[in-house]
């Protein structure tokens, strides 16, 4: 699995309230919600994002509310991957559970610039900044989590587990 696209760069402590403001949470419909992804800090994101593009952010990405709508709208917009220095724990868990690829890599998150063209290989954790030519290596997931991701999310992995019992 991999993704390639343009970088949208964000600061530290991007919270789930700006990823998807609560005023829109009167619907669980991901497509409708996705129209408002990031709008409180980046009004152009939804208009500009293309399938496969990559979000790059600082520390504690996805802090705040447990709303699963947050990784869901990022994924629904077509974002191929989020790279951050660190993720808030509920966001991290939710992203894995719904199948949004995320990678923790401090160096990449620091150095990659907005609008760079980036390629990410999830199997190896290798991040290539095509614009600068620089290559980074993210921490791989533990096997247990890798299994949830390759199954296509938590519920699929539970179903597969039940079949194997």
């Amino acid at each position: 699995m991999n993704t390639q696209g343009k970088v949208f760069k964000y600061p530290d402590n991007v919270d789930t309230d700006v990823i998807i403001p609560a005023r829109y949470l009167n619907t669980p419909d991901a497509k409708e919600l996705a129209l408002h992804c990031m709008e409180d800090i980046d009004t152009e994101f939804v208009e500009k994002v293309q399938r496969g593009d990559v979000m790059v952010a600082g520390w504690n990405f996805g802090c705040g509310s447990s709303r699963e709508h947050a990784p869901l709208v990022i994924k629904t917009c077509g974002t191929g991957c989020v790279i951050a220095k660190s993720f808030a724990r509920i966001f991290y868990r939710n992203a894995i559970n719904i199948g949004l690829p995320i990678l923790e890599c401090e160096e990449a998150a620091e150095e990659i610039n907005a609008n760079d063209e980036v390629k990410v290989d999830f199997d190896t954790g290798v991040i290539t900044d095509i614009t600068t030519g620089k290559i980074y290596k993210a921490q791989p997931f533990p096997a247990f989590i890798q299994n949830i991701i390759t199954s296509g999310g938590l519920l699929n992995s539970l179903k597969e587990g039940a079949k194997n019992d």
Binding site: R67, E68, R93, N94, N97, I98, G153, L154, L155, L158
Partner: peptide
């Protein structure tokens, strides 16, 4: 946790 964890 999130909603998928709640469902599980």
């Amino acid at each position: 946790v999130g909603s998928t964890d709640m469902a599980a």
